Simulated assay, not measured.
Amino acid sequence: MSNRTGLGSALPATGIEEAYERFAPLAEKYWGPDLHNGYWYDSEDDSSLEDASRRLTEFVTDKLGVGPGDRVLDLGCGNGRPAVSAGLRTGADVTGIDVNRRALREAATHASASGVSHYVSFEYADALNPPFRPGAFDAVMSLESSPHFELAELLPSMARLLRPGGRLVLEAPFARVPASERLRHRTAEYYELIQAVSLDTLQRHVELANAAGLSPVEFVDITENTMPTWPRALRRLRDGWDEIERVLGAELAERAIATVSAWRELPEVGIMILTLRRDEVLFPS
Rank of each mutant, 00 (worst) to 15 (best):
G15E: 07
E218A: 05
V99Q: 08
G270A: 05
L170Q: 12
L155P: 09
E251W: 10
A179G: 15
A83E: 09
L237E: 15
D51F: 00
L73H: 02
R176K: 15
P130A: 09
R101Y: 04
F132P: 01
V72R: 04
F174D: 13
Y191G: 07
R255T: 14
E150Q: 13
T90P: 07
P147S: 13
W31K: 10
H148C: 11
Y124A: 00
G249A: 14
R160Q: 08
E44Y: 00
G135Q: 12
S215C: 10
R278P: 04
G87T: 02
V247C: 12
S121Q: 08
L170D: 10
G135A: 06
P33M: 10
F137Y: 11
Y119M: 00
W40F: 08
S2E: 08
S146T: 10
A175P: 08
I244F: 13
T223D: 09
Y191W: 13
Y20H: 12
N210C: 05
L151Y: 06
G87N: 04
I271W: 12
S198Q: 12
L274I: 03
D74Q: 08
F174C: 14
R277W: 07
R54T: 06
H148V: 04
G8Y: 00
L56I: 03
R184Q: 14
V260H: 07
G15N: 02
Q203W: 10
S157D: 03
L155K: 05
G96R: 02
E268R: 04
Y124N: 00
Q195R: 14
S145H: 03
G65Q: 11
R89A: 11
R54M: 02
I222C: 06
R167T: 09
A86T: 07
R22I: 09
S180P: 11
F132V: 00
F149E: 07
V169D: 07
I257R: 08
T14N: 08
E192F: 07
A250Y: 05
N37H: 12
T61C: 09
D51M: 00
L49F: 06
D51I: 00
R163G: 12
D46R: 10
S215Q: 14
I244C: 15
R278K: 12
L11N: 01
L276W: 06
E207V: 12
A250M: 07
A253I: 10
R186V: 09
R184W: 12
P82M: 12
L35H: 03
Q195L: 04
V99Y: 02
R89K: 06
V120S: 05
N79W: 09
L208W: 02
R182L: 14
R278Q: 02
L75Y: 00
E123T: 09
H118P: 01
H36A: 13
S48H: 11
V269S: 04
D42C: 03
